[in-house]
Design a protein around this nucleic acid. Structure first.
Lengths: 197, 197
DNA sequence: GTCTATAAATCGATAGAC
DNA sequence: GTCTATCGATTTATAGAC
């Protein structure tokens, strides 16, 4: 194996710290996880962490970016190109069950957002990311509707916002009460995709 | 004015602390507000606060109880007994605009819930309160449907959970991005209450 | 760029006087 | 029951050696 350049070495450290923060923030929560703990679990010192991420918030935003990318990819893959309408809904139902069912990613997003709701800098970042996600979701809905040859029951933008909001709401409640069912969001998608042909 | 008994005096202090915590938690957030700050703003010492509320979590749960009671009362009042269907929807729309629009209460509930999601004690308390709220909401939907002589498009339980979840989701996003519209939840209520006659 | 060591502040919660 | 004073732990972030 070739020796790493300084830049490669730093990128590796950064990635390693990000991996560790990803696991800890999702598992224990944002407030409950200290930077000390991240450094320790990653096998570095606190100083090393801070030389890659200026603040705890910046580290968490990087984790949230990774999560958002994963979600969009998974969602597109799972609804993908099943031939029949019901197969796509079933695919979504499976995804919802696994992903909203284990609602730790929703909890993390929401814990970070609400805890920093008075920080204009952070709010700006979160608002930008929010638009990116809803746009991607709306685009996915449009593409699915096209393939199925229907017009969604709601405008794609509205449908995307409603689905995302419902997912957040259900996920948050499931975080402290696992008896909350995931079904409502599957019903909503079915309604949305049962538009006029 | 008669002199206060010891019990009355303590009840007054407790109420005063609760008022202050209510304002600060809603305005600044749960994590961002220290017990020191609550005591100072209420005009007491930290010890006085701790002799009325054993922990910070207990104080926040008391605040959340007050909020929940307010919401249910307001919602019942605003949809109340308008003669026409459209007037009730309009009443709800106004309430949604003011109450979800200023989403600080949603943010507080959600910040507290997600920050304590690994605390089984707190989760139990929150789950119990959640059931109380959804039950009250479902009952309200049933009563409204009865008065209007219709059958809701969704079962009242499901409708209540869906409305609550959507409200949480929209409220959380509005906390950091005020451009998020409240309209989807009004649309949903309209759909729910447009059931078969 | 990563380390050790520590600063500097704040937190929730408690002890003991009154 | 309320006060002052403080504990003890933890936090984010920084300074300087290597």
């Amino acid at each position: 194996m070739a020796r790493l350049t300084r830049a490669e070495s730093q990128a590796r450290t950064r990635e390693h710290v990000l991996d560790t923060a990803y696991t800890l923030f999702l598992g224990e929560g944002f407030t409950a996880t200290s930077m000390e703990r991240v450094a320790e679990a990653a096998g570095y010192s606190k100083g090393a962490v801070y030389s890659n991420f200026a603040t705890k918030n910046e580290l968490c935003l990087a984790v949230l970016d990774r999560i958002a990318a994963e979600q969009v990819t998974q969602l597109a893959a799972v609804m993908g190109d099943a031939p029949r309408f019901e197969d796509r809904i079933a695919g979504f139902a499976r995804w919802a069950d696994e992903t909203i069912g284990d609602s730790s990613w929703t909890s993390l997003e929401v814990e970070f957002a609400t805890a920093n709701r008075r920080d204009k800098q952070v709010c700006e970042q979160l608002a930008q990311r929010r638009r990116t996600v809803t746009d991607a979701l709306a685009e996915l809905i449009r593409a699915q509707a096209d393939e199925l040859g229907i017009t969604p029951a709601l405008p794609a933008d509205t449908a995307a916002l409603t689905l995302l909001s419902l997912g957040i709401g259900l996920g948050v409640q499931r975080a402290f009460d696992p008896t909350v069912p995931v079904q409502p969001i599957v019903d909503l998608l079915r309604t949305v995709m049962s538009g006029r042909p």
